[in-house]
Amino acid sequence: MTHDRIWYLLGRKMANELLPEEEKELERLLQQYPDVSYAKEVLLQSWKDKQKDFAAADVEAALQRNKQRLLEVQVEEVPTPRTNKIFRMALRLGSVAAAAILLFIGGRMWLSRQADSKPGQPALQQLVTKTGSRTYIKLPDGTSVWLNAGSKLDYPEQFHGSNREVVLREKPISKWRKMPSILSL
């Protein structure tokens, strides 16, 4: 069909890709086939989405949700993705170890029930995070910890000697400078 050239040019016209000489060619062809002018009008007018024709308010709401998420991930950005991955792996290993440690500590607590309040025990500090808020803390030995929402961390005011013991409940998002020697989960 001789019309084929028209469709090609009309497509380019619609896409704003028409070269000046093609523009002239299209004009000539449209004079030859005036009924196509009607199709041209329709093709060049604005079209709308059949489904999900978003109103400006919908887009605005989506943007606000996105900004909220952006704020949340920016907090999580603090440990770099690589450390995070390594840490998650460590956490997985750690949870196995933690079960063992828990048994050990449980046993020890049972054994040392009588000698409960030993003199010279360092004073403990407790940090509790509210649900929905993450907290950053620097321990006395310089270890930095990010505590996830709804977590609890017991730690001494001062670490003495090589015994660096902290007790953590709930899951942490943290970056240990140097793992404390005993970690109870």
């Binding site: 019309h3 084929d4 469709w7 090609y8 009309l10 497509g11 380019r12 619609m14 896409a15 009924d35 196509v36 009607y38 199709a39 329709v42 093709l43």
Partner: peptide, 13 residues
């Protein structure tokens, strides 16, 4: 695109 334009134009005509 030419194929699509042709179809649309045919529907209109």
């Amino acid at each position: 695109l030419a194929i699509a334009v042709k179809k649309v134009a045919a529907a209109i005509r």
